[in-house]
Design a protein around this nucleic acid. Sequence first.
DNA 1: CTATGTGTTGAACGTCGTTCAGAGAAGGTG
DNA 2: CACCTTCTCTGAACGACGTTCAACACATAG
Lengths: 198, 198
Amino acid sequence: MARDTEKRRAELRAKLLEIAEIEVREKGVQSLRARALAEQAGCAVGAIYNVFDDLTGLILALNGRTFQRLGASVSEEVDQSGGAPVDKLIIMGHAYLRFATDNPNLWRALFDVEMTADGIVPVWYLEELGRLFAIIAAPLAQMHPKAEPAELDLMTRTLFSSVHGIVLLGLERRISGVPTERIKEMITFLLTRFSEGP
Amino acid sequence: MARDTEKRRAELRAKLLEIAEIEVREKGVQSLRARALAEQAGCAVGAIYNVFDDLTGLILALNGRTFQRLGASVSEEVDQSGGAPVDKLIIMGHAYLRFATDNPNLWRALFDVEMTADGIVPVWYLEELGRLFAIIAAPLAQMHPKAEPAELDLMTRTLFSSVHGIVLLGLERRISGVPTERIKEMITFLLTRFSEGP
DNA sequence: CTATGTGTTGAACGTCGTTCAGAGAAGGTG
DNA sequence: CACCTTCTCTGAACGACGTTCAACACATAG
């Protein structure tokens, strides 16, 4: 009974996430509606609040999946690529860009969440980000064997933030923006320059 | 009469913007409420819609002011600084960071606007961004006298986006984030590395 | 004074996320 | 079988939101 309930809730959680993902992917996170979600899932509106704190909690859970897929996507591409560390960095940057262009709404949702609620960021959110950072840090450590951990961390954050900024502003408005190919160039440009330094 | 009306509307516009700016500065753009705005301005809710298309229009107008102040702030700091072009770049990056830390909510509002409405970005929005780009392009042109305009544009966008990304993720969550001093380091780091290239 | 055109108003509308009193199912007990 | 207890789920109701528009106020012209 307690087991049954738990199982049913887990199923509802999964179902809601599945439906929400489709909606967010197609229309963006702003179009997520509690009532529409419940109707598609064949449950009552209130049921959503039995398995999630609120819609923000649902979006956070959804972002968790997206984060994992993003990490996997980047890892995969860099793993099956040989080459110098700098090439790995560039491939990672391009993989990040590709993920963003392939899943613009899901990717955007990662950063659009209303974090202002209580200023509380879930632990796993930071963990996922840390995993992404770790992927970047590896080639950097290879390039700078003698660098202090603190300095490596600085470089990692700098590079990730820079690439993120390039992708973000590049995709922000197609109108003002540049074609994807130019964004790729910008990433290559940045990382190449960065790696030529002392 | 037509004059009178126009004047009164202009005054209401200014008054609403003033009040909205205080609210956004203190509570963030998400806390802007039509009713509260009207009450503080001593007018009817409907009056807001006589002088602005909707709340998004008001926020866009507010962002216009912020954009100008941001540009002025960055220009001022870089103008009164001599030094090599690379130092100007660094000063500009730091000025951008300072503006963002001094006015976090106003700065954030610049990028949080719901642009998705019709995909229509006001012309002056792009013009203001262009002005910011121009400020950056100047030292870059000095550093690379022989660079093609297209290449300069690429560098400009790359650097602006990178610094923006560093500031954005750096301030995103104080919890996960790094202290401001570290963000400054990251900007210096990036721009120095970038300028040492060929 | 009345008629006319123009500007302003705020109650009303539709929609949203969220809640919670009550319906309903399931299990235990005699 | 009937009855009670316990836990779960439901969906109408709530309050707040942005936005609208019929009704009002008022200045001017005849």
